[in-house]
């Protein structure tokens, strides 16, 4: 199963959601797989921060569906967030973990999941996230997207994907700071709120 194909399936289901995205090659893949979601996606370079940030966003916007696109390396970096999701039970958070069993962006050394013994979905269930599953086919993944996007409890799907990257895709040119402004302005416009307003004086 290729991550890019999974992203294409997920993207077709998204419209008004907000997405927090992990680092590495998945950034450019998402940029191309979901062009209609570019301003609604926060492209960040933060191992271990993605699902916590997505949960914070979900806590602040309880009426908006939030999607976290995390990774095996990112989730293993901070497993504690699964226990926090288990206790807090957010009603509007769908978490995808792209599990390619390697640190792809630095050349592919194995993560802990490559051993075959470490099961992130089982860890999530043990942490109190009842709906946590592993998907190995596109149809399985797509079915979990359908269920996860309308669930009223936290929903985690670990997508077992190949360690390859979609070739010949357009690179994103913006950095984390520009990405934040784009995302914040999108949230402001779609929620009708001010997040980064004017100073006291110009």
């Amino acid at each position: 199963m290729k991550r890019f194909d999974c992203m294409t399936r997920l993207a077709a289901r998204l419209d008004n959601e907000l997405v927090i995205l992990s680092l590495g090659a998945s950034v450019d893949e998402w940029y191309n797989a979901a062009p209609h979601m570019r301003t609604a996606s926060l492209f960040q370079q933060q191992l271990g921060c993605v699902t916590p940030q997505a949960f914070g966003l979900a806590a602040g916007l309880p009426d908006r569906r939030i999607v976290s696109l995390d990774t095996d390396g990112g989730m293993m970096f901070n497993l504690g967030i699964l226990a926090t999701l288990g206790n807090e039970q957010p009603k509007n958070l769908f978490v995808v973990v792209w599990d390619n069993e390697c640190y792809q962006s630095i050349g592919g050394p194995p993560t802990h999941t490559a051993s075959g013994r470490v099961d992130i979905a089982a860890i999530a269930r043990g942490a109190g996230v009842e709906h946590a599953y592993t998907a190995r086919t596109l149809d399985e993944f797509d079915a979990h997207c359908e269920a996860g996007l309308k669930a009223d409890t936290p929903y985690v799907v670990v997508a077992k994907v190949a360690g390859t990257v979609q070739p010949d895709i357009r690179r994103k040119h913006s950095d984390g700071r520009e990405d934040k402004y784009i995302f914040v302005r999108h949230v402001e416009a779609t929620e009708g709120i001010t997040i980064m307003g004017p100073s006291e004086h110009n």
């Binding site: 927090i20 926060l42 933060q46 271990g48 921060c49 916590p52 940030q53 997505a54 949960f55 914070g56 966003l57 979900a58 806590a59 602040g60 916007l61 901070n78 504690g80 967030i81 226990a83 926090t84 206790n87 807090e88 934040k180 995302f183 914040v184 949230v187 402001e188 929620e191 709120i193 001010t194 997040i195």
Partner: peptide, 23 residues
Amino acid sequence: IQVTNEGEGAAICGGVFLSGKRA
């Protein structure tokens, strides 16, 4: 929101900032 470590708490607060609420 009680967290498992303070770094997780910092990241959650960052997400709350993006929502327009204050944490």
